[in-house]
Amino acid sequence: MAAEVGRSHTTIRRVRNAFGLRPHPSEKFMLSSGPLFVDKMQDIVGLYISLPDRTVVLRLDQKSQIKALDR
């Protein structure tokens, strides 16, 4: 990221820490059992393979604790 935006690694770390940003976690993988999982996965993978110009991809997670509180 630092090389891409032309800043130092230290600057990137400071910005991430200031805003509480974290890199995408990759130490675990949970496969969804949702009925539309395959369709959604194909849409998302398709975006990454052939990303239209001037596109931003955001990832939002719903925490399982929040689901439990809603019940």
Rank of each mutant, 00 (worst) to 15 (best):
H9F: 09
Q62R: 15
K63D: 11
I66L: 13
Q42A: 08
S26A: 05
L60I: 11
V57G: 02
P25K: 08
D53A: 14
G46E: 04
D39H: 13
S64E: 12
R14V: 11
L58G: 02
D61E: 11
K40A: 13
S8G: 09
L69T: 05
P23E: 11
I44A: 13
Q42N: 04
D43N: 09
V5G: 01
Q42M: 09
Y48V: 01
M41N: 04
D61Q: 06
V38H: 06
M30K: 09
V57I: 12
D39A: 14
G6F: 05
S33W: 13
G34I: 03
D39G: 04
G6S: 02
R7Q: 11
E27S: 05
G46W: 12
F37D: 01
E4L: 14
R59S: 11
I49P: 00
M41S: 07
D61F: 15
G46T: 02
G20Y: 11
K28V: 03
E4H: 05
Q42T: 01
R16Q: 08
V15M: 09
K28E: 00
G34C: 13
M1D: 07
I44D: 01
L47E: 07
R59W: 13
A68K: 15
I66V: 09
S64V: 14
D53R: 08
S64W: 12
E27I: 00
F19S: 07
D39T: 06
A3Y: 08
E27H: 09
L47W: 12
G34S: 10
K63W: 14
R13N: 06
L47K: 06
R54I: 00
R22F: 10
P35A: 13
R16N: 02
R13Q: 05
G46K: 04
F29Q: 05
V56P: 00
V15D: 04
P52D: 06
D61T: 02
R14T: 07
P52K: 07
H24S: 04
F37I: 01
L51C: 12
L51T: 02
V57F: 04
M41R: 10
A18K: 13
R71Q: 15
H24P: 00
F37P: 00
L69E: 13
V45F: 10
V38R: 05
D43W: 15
G46C: 06
V56D: 01
Q65R: 14
P35M: 12
D53I: 06
Q65A: 15
V56M: 05
S32W: 13
V57Y: 02
H9S: 04
M41I: 07
T55V: 01
D53Y: 10
L21N: 02
S33F: 15
S64A: 15
G6V: 03
P35G: 12
I12G: 02
K40P: 00
P25W: 10
H9P: 00
L47C: 12
G34H: 14
E4F: 10
T55M: 02
L36R: 10
